[in-house]
Design a binder for these strands. Sequence first.
DNA 1: GCCTAACCGAGACGGTACGTCCGGTCTTTTT
DNA 2: AAAAAGACCGGACGTACCGTCTCGGTTAGGC
Lengths: 224, 224, 224, 224
Amino acid sequence: MNQRLSTDRRVGETVDVRPTPRGRKRDPSRDAAILEAALDVLAEVGASGITMDLVAERAGAGKGTIYRRWPSKAELIVDAVAYLVRNQVDVEHLPDTGSLRGDLLGLFKPDAMVESTRLLNVMRAFASLLADDHALADAGSAAIVGPWADAHLLFMQRAVARGEVSASADIGTVSQILPSMAAYRTLIQQKPFTEEFMLSIMDGVIMPALGIYAAIAPTKSTGV
Amino acid sequence: MNQRLSTDRRVGETVDVRPTPRGRKRDPSRDAAILEAALDVLAEVGASGITMDLVAERAGAGKGTIYRRWPSKAELIVDAVAYLVRNQVDVEHLPDTGSLRGDLLGLFKPDAMVESTRLLNVMRAFASLLADDHALADAGSAAIVGPWADAHLLFMQRAVARGEVSASADIGTVSQILPSMAAYRTLIQQKPFTEEFMLSIMDGVIMPALGIYAAIAPTKSTGV
Amino acid sequence: MNQRLSTDRRVGETVDVRPTPRGRKRDPSRDAAILEAALDVLAEVGASGITMDLVAERAGAGKGTIYRRWPSKAELIVDAVAYLVRNQVDVEHLPDTGSLRGDLLGLFKPDAMVESTRLLNVMRAFASLLADDHALADAGSAAIVGPWADAHLLFMQRAVARGEVSASADIGTVSQILPSMAAYRTLIQQKPFTEEFMLSIMDGVIMPALGIYAAIAPTKSTGV
Amino acid sequence: MNQRLSTDRRVGETVDVRPTPRGRKRDPSRDAAILEAALDVLAEVGASGITMDLVAERAGAGKGTIYRRWPSKAELIVDAVAYLVRNQVDVEHLPDTGSLRGDLLGLFKPDAMVESTRLLNVMRAFASLLADDHALADAGSAAIVGPWADAHLLFMQRAVARGEVSASADIGTVSQILPSMAAYRTLIQQKPFTEEFMLSIMDGVIMPALGIYAAIAPTKSTGV
DNA sequence: GCCTAACCGAGACGGTACGTCCGGTCTTTTT
DNA sequence: AAAAAGACCGGACGTACCGTCTCGGTTAGGC
């Protein structure tokens, strides 16, 4: 969590009361090395096999160096997942295809995101930790599902603005459907997040719920 | 998983090659005692605090007796959850209220299901284990969400039959929305499954997706 | 210990109040089978490796059958050792060679007694149990060393009678030297009971202590 | 056995190839604490009652710390006994009383050696373990009996030098009589090592075997 | 020729110690 | 002062084994 904590620094204050740091400075390269090592180990031995000693050895770091940065194994893994997702998803530049369906389809790149064993194993460990540690559940879950839900909401707000969707639709709720079902399928059911599944939700639920009955042939049910 | 194994018996074969079991029989009362003890311990000390010694002591059983039945702590807890759900849900007699919305509302009794600390803690442990053990994920998840999804599907088939819902609606997919989102909210997000949340999904997603725009005032978005 | 217990029967009483035993009789062949199995297992896996289940399996017996006869593993092994020694040593017919030294030498047959791995392993287990179980120490030890000490004493009494040894010699103590040192060497030191060692004791201790300085060249010290 | 291993260091070699040890050093105080705890537990609960968890708790140590030093319970106890004997016996300054009998009598202080429950229980455990573990038997046994036998031999060599004992006597063998019979009596027979027993051996065996018939009234036989 | 008690082999049971592993902390040396 | 290495405490894991018990089946008397 040091990343977050490090952003807590209030800049621009008149006086910084903290004394000048003495002695050797923290080596910033260790953070990334440890996070990468954690992700590697997760992908190799799985959620139940990960060990702090293993991570330390892989990172070429001492356990003290890890515990100076993260207070527990759980928080290290949460940060590692956040680190992974940060580098994976790019919610910043959202292309405008002109239709809601096109926008949503453009958001997901199944190849990069889902088929990676690395990402899948990380997700499993993540779910495991959330269930173990009540305090992390909310923050951790939001860090993963949040960005996608935000993007969905933005797309739907655009669709309302251009008249594609009625203003009375509950887009706040609908925007959460696909992200949370994708998370459930990946984390709990351990099934791959296929395009077929995505299209079922899209055309069987989201489009009808928003009153969009385009000239699209309805897809079959996935039969989960 | 011994329950499942017992169903492996092939009946009706000409010759049963298995020899008569010799020695003392397994005491079936130990199964229930151990499962109950596991659920008790889970509810008391939580998912991360459960211990085989604790379960054994609570059950008045030796550890050998537990490990003779389940090969690991993970599988014991999965069976304990299945045992709990079996005794908790009663999907057998489904009242017919005449409308899909009424049927679905009648299915959920939030008090019994959600407010129970026992059930909630059990679910947390369950999610933790599913993420650990790939092989258990599918079966375990299905055992929990499955019955509810089946009930939803049945209600929607009735609604189609009575003309309330169009035959072209993808009820196979829609029937999974609420169960899986409820599971996600409970297991991963650790948030309570409130009536407000349920109504958001119901009136903001399911009803519109099935083309039912009744004279019901739409509820506010939950803002997850 | 059933052998000993069975001799507890008081015969000659006026009335035997014990009712006629009903039901199936104990199968006497099981006693020997179990004792032999115990000795086999001891010789194969050693003192620390012996297990009641192993003995039962080897004997083709149930554990209940064993525990009906002996109250504990310790007592079974003590009896097994006694059984072995009973069949091994024949203190009954003691040949009279005319000289004490000849009598004593004739008593020991190193080949049969000492080089047997079976006997050695049994002895190790025996020592282990004696040290564990205070109550067995005296009886067990006497059962092994006793017969030899008795034979030694008898030979020395003969020697006193024929004038070979002075009547003032403490033959009660001297007769215990060789048996107990042999036991110590075998049980504790785990060294073989060689003829060389025996002759050292004989000619370096026993003969001089009894005042017999025959025309025998003194052997070298063993240098334990 | 780490004590012994530490003596394996070859000194005087041109180059010491072993690199500087890195990381935290082993805490030498833990060795003593664990050995003392083992001896305490032995004296309190006996040989069959000792437990590694008990030793760890008593020493305030983790089990890992114990198993990092000794590979098994057996070897820990052997080392504990060696540690006890090292601190118990003081064979260094042997008083010269002028007569062999006086020297030998002066060596034994029955109070310190025998009446101590602590020492006795330790010895029982020791015998039990020796019988279990062949590899330990010789070294362990020598560590206990050795020092006493050495002292006896020294006394007898003095006696030969001063003409009290004939040069042809096999003092190498005779010097082992009392130590090994004392060990046998204590370890196997579990009987106390009384002064009466000692005098029987002394005056009934050792003195006559060495040709010393002093003006001492012969004691009665012990009748083991 | 049954009836019934005690036997038998097999193996499940409660309890407990084993030796291993790992989370989080502390110590030593080097940078 | 931070870093790498690794020892340290505490405690859970899954295995093994003791002595007891239960199961179905066998072997005797006694009726």
